[in-house]
Amino acid sequence: MDEIVRAALKKWPNVPDCRGWLALDARGDWYMRDEACQRAGAFPHPKGSPVRHDKLREFINRNYEADAQGAWFFQNGPQRVYVELEAAPLVLRLLDDGGLEDHTGTPLSAQSCWLDEEGWLYVQTERGLGLVHSQDMGRAADRIEAGDWDPRPVTRAELPGRFGFVRKP
Score class of each variant (00 low, 15 high):
G138I: 10
A110H: 04
P78G: 10
Q135Y: 11
P151Y: 03
N63H: 07
A140M: 11
G128S: 09
P78R: 05
E117Y: 01
H103Q: 15
G77I: 05
R80G: 06
E145V: 13
A140V: 09
L95H: 06
G98M: 11
R93W: 02
K55S: 14
D97E: 14
D67E: 05
F59L: 13
D148R: 12
L56V: 15
D96F: 06
L129T: 08
W120A: 12
C113K: 03
L92P: 05
I144A: 06
R93I: 07
A110Q: 04
L90C: 04
A71D: 03
P89N: 08
A66L: 05
A110D: 03
S112A: 15
Q135R: 15
N76L: 06
E126G: 15
S134V: 14
Q124W: 04
E126T: 12
A88T: 13
Q75R: 13
V123M: 09
G147R: 04
D142H: 10
A146D: 13
G128M: 02
T104W: 02
E84R: 01
G98V: 07
R127S: 13
A146G: 09
A68T: 06
R152A: 14
N61T: 03
D116E: 05
E126H: 04
F59S: 11
M137A: 02
E118W: 02
S112G: 15
S134H: 13
E145T: 14
D97Q: 09
P151W: 06
R62K: 14
H133Q: 12
A140D: 08
W72Q: 07
L94M: 12
T104G: 09
K55P: 08
S134K: 12
R93P: 00
P107Y: 06
T155R: 13
A88P: 01
L56W: 09
R57A: 13
V132D: 03
L56R: 12
L85T: 01
C113I: 10
V81I: 13
G70N: 08
N63T: 10
T106L: 14
Q111E: 15
L56E: 11
L115G: 03
G99N: 11
S109P: 00
L100Y: 07
A66H: 04
E101M: 12
P153S: 12
R57L: 08
C113N: 09
L90A: 06
F73W: 00
D142A: 15
A87W: 00
L90V: 06
R143Q: 14
Q79H: 08
P89C: 10
P153M: 06
W114S: 00
D116K: 02
D136G: 06
D148K: 15
P107W: 09
L115Q: 13
L129F: 09
T104V: 07
W72I: 04
R127F: 05
N61Y: 05
R127Q: 14
A88D: 00
Q69L: 09
A88K: 01
L56G: 05
A88N: 01
P151E: 08
E101H: 05
R62N: 12
D148C: 11
Y122M: 05
A88F: 02
Y82K: 02
G130M: 07
V81R: 01
G99D: 07
M137N: 05
D67M: 08
W149G: 04
G128H: 00
D150Y: 02
A88I: 07
T104Q: 14
R143L: 14
T155C: 07
Y64G: 00
E117S: 04
Y122H: 07
N61D: 15
N61L: 06
E118Y: 10
